[in-house]
Design a protein around this nucleic acid. Sequence first.
DNA 1: CGGTAATCGAGACGGTACGTCGTGTCTTGAG
DNA 2: CTCAAGACACGACGTACCGTCTCGATTACCG
Lengths: 207, 207, 207, 207
Amino acid sequence: MAETTAASGRTPDSTRRSERSRRAIFDAALALVGEVGFARTTVEGIAARAGVGKQTIYRWWPSKAAVLLDAYLDLAAGAAEDGEAALPDTGDLAADLRTVLRATVDELNDPRYEAPTRALTAEGVVDPVLGARFVERLLEPQLELYARRLRAAQDAGDVRPDVDPRVALELFVGPLTHRWLLRTRPLTHAYADELVGYALHGIAARP
Amino acid sequence: MAETTAASGRTPDSTRRSERSRRAIFDAALALVGEVGFARTTVEGIAARAGVGKQTIYRWWPSKAAVLLDAYLDLAAGAAEDGEAALPDTGDLAADLRTVLRATVDELNDPRYEAPTRALTAEGVVDPVLGARFVERLLEPQLELYARRLRAAQDAGDVRPDVDPRVALELFVGPLTHRWLLRTRPLTHAYADELVGYALHGIAARP
Amino acid sequence: MAETTAASGRTPDSTRRSERSRRAIFDAALALVGEVGFARTTVEGIAARAGVGKQTIYRWWPSKAAVLLDAYLDLAAGAAEDGEAALPDTGDLAADLRTVLRATVDELNDPRYEAPTRALTAEGVVDPVLGARFVERLLEPQLELYARRLRAAQDAGDVRPDVDPRVALELFVGPLTHRWLLRTRPLTHAYADELVGYALHGIAARP
Amino acid sequence: MAETTAASGRTPDSTRRSERSRRAIFDAALALVGEVGFARTTVEGIAARAGVGKQTIYRWWPSKAAVLLDAYLDLAAGAAEDGEAALPDTGDLAADLRTVLRATVDELNDPRYEAPTRALTAEGVVDPVLGARFVERLLEPQLELYARRLRAAQDAGDVRPDVDPRVALELFVGPLTHRWLLRTRPLTHAYADELVGYALHGIAARP
DNA sequence: CGGTAATCGAGACGGTACGTCGTGTCTTGAG
DNA sequence: CTCAAGACACGACGTACCGTCTCGATTACCG
């Protein structure tokens, strides 16, 4: 589980690292963010809760956001092990997209994940380094699944061959993310379905 | 220009308020966020730079984010005075959308606005109250312009009548925002054009 | 009660200073040094005990030693108010010196004063600035009393007129201090008497 | 050269000890105290400079003061080898004392020795165990030289037979130390001479 | 048109957290 | 076993800001 290595003067020897502390820090960080939110979570608080010296956190991470990101990645890695290396492919692209987008809606609405995900995303919006890492490790792998499914659909003749899947997928995740991040309108299954319809067939009138 | 009024015990008498200080605070806030970023901008710093007592800030705003939001709204109000109460309507919907989206791309890429816009958006992602205000005062009015243009296109028979403009517009702004906030891919005019094409006509193959 | 003004960037406005805090800090500092010793007394501890922010200490003093010195001076000033502006002068120089030196022995042996006095002295040995202040405010005024008494004795013909009182007085306080600081031998009344005997006949006029 | 043995649970096997490390630690300790002072010298710093593990220091000494003391004793032992097992005895007590006291003044004023000597003395003032060791190993042997010379003077009839040499010697070293430690007045040869004059006639036999 | 009640600049205050440094203990691998 | 190296839990450092709280000194309404 690679970490956002601290950029300070001397690099510590990672072979001698305490796995026990690493785990305790992750657990404490996630728990605290869930309980009091990211803003009121402090490095000091994480250290205290993890039964760890502050220095042990600063030795391995440059900021509390980096800690949380690694904790989150660790969590996601655990969850990813058992499952979903690919989007469903029943042959019906619209149905498959509806399934996935509905699942995404449910996940985004799940209060357990909301706080840390929002915190991390917001931090990434403002901190390019952290954001890049967030995208590279978490977001892009997910988007790649969409791209793959769309490519399969192209092979099956369900999607225009001149369409760039990497761009097309944003028609689905872009609006969803927009609603969720900015809270402009409620995120519902109905919205997911509507989105699939619009994006798949466009909004222009047919002659 | 209404402020996010401080919610503390006694409401101050706004008629006696110093306009001079208000302006100085806005200027200082925007300047500091531009120079050192939102995170390293402090209320103390704003006060010092504005030549103002800290209490004068705390009297009128509940947080530095609220100050920045009002400063930003003030800025936007000034900019909005001269112009764009509506999206262009040349009769060619695709062309008009390309124009607008390209302009948006340019704006988002403008380093002058980047820091404060990102800061406010990120803050809104995490703080629902601030986010709501941000959306209500800044985002929704802009989205309404899209909705209006799409409704006109429906009247002209260029957009399917069963399409909900408020949802459809997210096909354009959603992906754009997604790229900008998360920095997944560069934001270019070519992308804006591609997006208009995809969203307008869908990605599904035609039989 | 002048303080060892902090040498940091901006000098605080001493007219707005909280007398309440000043007193609480002195009390806490003296209490802690008495209870756990100087080395294990911390600025943090003083602040906590005094119910004061750390910054309030750092605003007015550059180090814990400076705090303790001022606390000590404040104490001494309080004690000095009621009393001893001069050494006793019964006409019998030897007896008077014995009285004073015995009292000094008792004071140095008093466990209540021992810890802070040793701490302060040791700190002054190593920190010239603090030491100078210690000497100027506490030690020299006391030594001046000796000098005055010796001058009176010269006037009375009990001390050789060519003797420099400021040097002569060190024959008494030097050895006493030496024993106390370095703990070479026990400090007793007998020693005080012996010292007076030895030193006095060196400077006493011969008939 | 005996060390202030660490008092921890298991005593290490001193026969397997690295002489190389011991010397390196002494050198590093003395160098650091000379360069940055005792307070800012750290065990970690000594270890790093000596190219030694921290544990190697903690294995053999209980504190940095103890390390410095041993380093100092080691130094003094080297210096003592070539010389002065006794005070000069030309038959003229006053002259001999002046010689010795002037040499002491020079030594105390030597900036090379000032930092470590002050540091050790100050530490001994506050730490009775260390102080006792300092006195026993360094101070008392020197004082004994004075006592011996005074006894010789008594035998020669130059000093009153009822005088206790161990007390009398403090008339010389006490005031000198007082001036040096507390920096009340400059330490000069003239002062040394004056001191001898004052003190000596106090203890000299009367014709 | 002077009294008075507010806001204003300034900044001290009690706090919380920061990120760093040093302590003394413990562990690892080499000799 | 000792040693160099250094990670660890811990505690304190001195600093930066927080949001609250006095302080005069304007300043603008009101009687």
